[in-house]
Write a protein that binds this DNA or RNA. Sequence first.
RNA 1: GGGUGUUUAACUCAGUUGGUUUAGAGUGUUACCUUGACAGGGUAGAAGUCACUGGUUCGAAUCCAGUAACACCCACCA
Length: 877
Amino acid sequence: MSIPTKFIPSEVEEKWYNYWLENNFFKSTPDSRKPYTIVIPPPNVTGVLHMGHMLNNSLQDILIRRARMKGYNACWVPGTDHASIATEAKVVEKLKKKGFSKNDLTREEFLKHAWEWTDEFGGVILEQLKKIGCSCDWDRTKFTLDPEMSESVINGFIDLHNRGLIYRGYRMVNWDPQAQTTLSDEEVIYKEKPGSLYYISYKIDDSDDSVVVATTRPETILGDTAICINPKDKRYKHLHGKKVIVPIAKRSIPIILDEYVDVEFGTGCLKVTPAHDPNDKMLGEKHKLDFIDVLNPNGTLNSKGLHYEGKDRFIVRKSIIKEIDNLGQLVKKENHISKVGTSERTSAIIEPRISEQWFLKMKSLAEPAKLSVLKSEEVQLIPEKFKKTYSHWMENITDWNISRQLWWGHRIPVYYYGKKSSNYVVAESIEKALELAKIKFKNNEISVSDLNQDDDVLDTWFSSWLWPISVFNGINEPDNDEINYYYPTQDLVTGPDILFFWVARMIMAGYAFRGNFPFSKVYLTGIVRDKKGKKMSKQLGNSPDALALIDEHGADAVRVGLMLSSAAGNDLLFDEKLCIQGKNFANKIWNAYRLIDSWNIDSKIKQPSSSIDALICFENTFNKDLESINDHFDKYRISDALMTAYKLVWDDFCSWLLETVKPDYGSSIDIITFDQIKLQFQNILKLIHPFMPFISEEIWHIIKVRSKPEESLIVSPWPKTKKYDKSILESYETMKQTIGALRKFRKENDLPQKFKLNLLCHNKNSIVFPEIISRLGQLEKIEFSDKKINQNGGVLNVGTNEFFIPLDIKIDFEKESIKINEEIKYLEKFRLSINKKLSNPSFVENAPNKIIEFEKKKLSDTEQKIKNLKSRLKKSV
RNA sequence: GGGUGUUUAACUCAGUUGGUUUAGAGUGUUACCUUGACAGGGUAGAAGUCACUGGUUCGAAUCCAGUAACACCCACCA
């Protein structure tokens, strides 16, 4: 059966993935080995794979596969996140298409729909991860709404509440009128939108005078409770202590003084609406103003909106301006571009509102998390540059609003008794709540129906921040075997965009619940961008279909493509061409295998010395590269590790080793070389496996022939580092250069490639691996001779070595001498610069000896080269 | 407005505590080769005022200051 010239990924990917699964290679249980653990950043349960996931999870798989080969008990815990807002928004949208809204349903009915949705689309993304080869321990798959996970969240809440860290408070929150929920600051996206700045005059009480204020949100006028001016503003000195009348509402409100007001902006007069603007709230509290909330949760005006009650805020904006204009109080209207907060999920315009919410005190939680990262002792951020951003955020941390007015999520375990919202108990169940309530309110008559559970759910991140602990059930059972074995985990791989949402909070939770950090390294990947530098996202439609890419190029190729240019923390401009490079690489490896497979072995042939030498060169190169690959891995320079392996395979293994040892057409190979080549190929497959798991496993099994499951590449030991001989590597380098010079010579002089030459060398000691040079340089032989060269031919200069090529034909000496002169000129300039350095007394005094010696060597080498060239010039003339 | 980065070959990026032959890689590009692993290949080559301006130093892509462009994060002026 002939082997296809091209590697066909689709024929092997599923086969090996299933093989790995069947043999439980991904599975991990605590044992006596050292654990190496990664918890996956849980993607949204109903999400689909995008390029960010691909990058992220390929990296994790590379790390976990290498750790597995290095003999660790490798455990990669997969899972998904319920993503309360994102999922709920999708379900609401789906219901809308069916013609009914969330409010038409009871909480239970809605949740039923949400679970149906989750069951339908949930986990698709995990199936996609399998396509790219992710070696997760699937038996451990967790979902943040699983019973055990939910229990962790509730217990975490109760614990923090008992420590006095959770409180109920009024807050200016970001209100999404469409989803009818509060959003965290992080979920609000500010967009520039053109609008108008309206100048409206307010009549001064007990006077015919008036004052003009500028506003972009006239609908909030009905909630005004003051006008604020800067006390230093000379224009308004006469207004100090006066009152003004709110248009339409005809209420009388005070003029207050505060330096907060910018004299330059608008008219220098600010209307203060404490219930609908964070800054106004601050002024309102400072000056003890009334708070008038004019909005309903759905964005329409409430009874405080008078005759506008029930109308949407944007409709009111238009009509109220009309009314004010009719009253003669609209002074002018200017175009104004303002940054408007919108919901990340629903894109609705956010309304700031005063609302009662649950908060988590962050200051004390942040302290240990801040220090551990700053000192890089327990948690290390890679790359380090994120440390600054991290500490800045930690220092300015504010309390975390953890309640959301949603249904899809973990319902807050708070039970109210009676009408006062301050009368509540916190408990994991209604039964427990009843017990507590009877004690707390000293009333044995209280029954279940007297208690009302809080309607809100917890912020999604409130379950995510427990993830590294809760996946091992460490919140509910703090002393179980799993958490004790796997925690703290080793590496976390995620995007820098969720450094604050998630990473920082997980570190805090680690110290809060286990007194220990959750992971020791955080590898922050770059953000995947398209060629124009735009962030790849589904919304922009510029993200290539991840699965289509795999179908087209193969999973190995896509993984390589992603890794090739993804230095940690640096954004990655993704270009599909990189996948093609990955594909070419896979094909190169495939054809190396085909070549080896095609050889006829003849046990009677003696091993040629060129093969012996080539193998020595390769082994030393391999050991050097292995050392540097390990070093790159230790520093999380994954793309460098891959590139080193890439060049080792392509250049050293294929172009030099295989080219040297491959038998001529029609001949056979000796058995010693053949076995050695197979061995080296296996070593190479090991290095390649973390990056390209499928093709490497495929070839591994073919060349190992009868390999048993436990001898699979995925669980084979990572190569051990061995010493290498630097002088051999130097000779190898010289040899490659010699061959290069020879090929160049042949080309420049228009000699056919198969034209066999003879090479004369004066210095026997300077020549290295002559057999390989003969073979790959297509030489008849290399002669060592002291005899004067007095015949036609050419000269090769390699470093300080000089070779003579005797030829029957004449070399174009004129052309040759021009070239030599140019080279001499270049070298003389170079010599001048070294001389200048060496004759500079302060250089000689200050520079370290090593550098001076080096410069001297440079000088003598250069002089030798010039001498060689000059003597060549003489001969040519 | 505050902060953090980036700027090195046509493109994407390295350049590891300032000295390692007047800067490296991959891709692309140019010329030539190619029935014996691979045209998704081979061989050889070309290609850079290290953003700009100053400074420190015997010595700067590397350190410092300033300028410019870009990116991201945070806060948001009615």
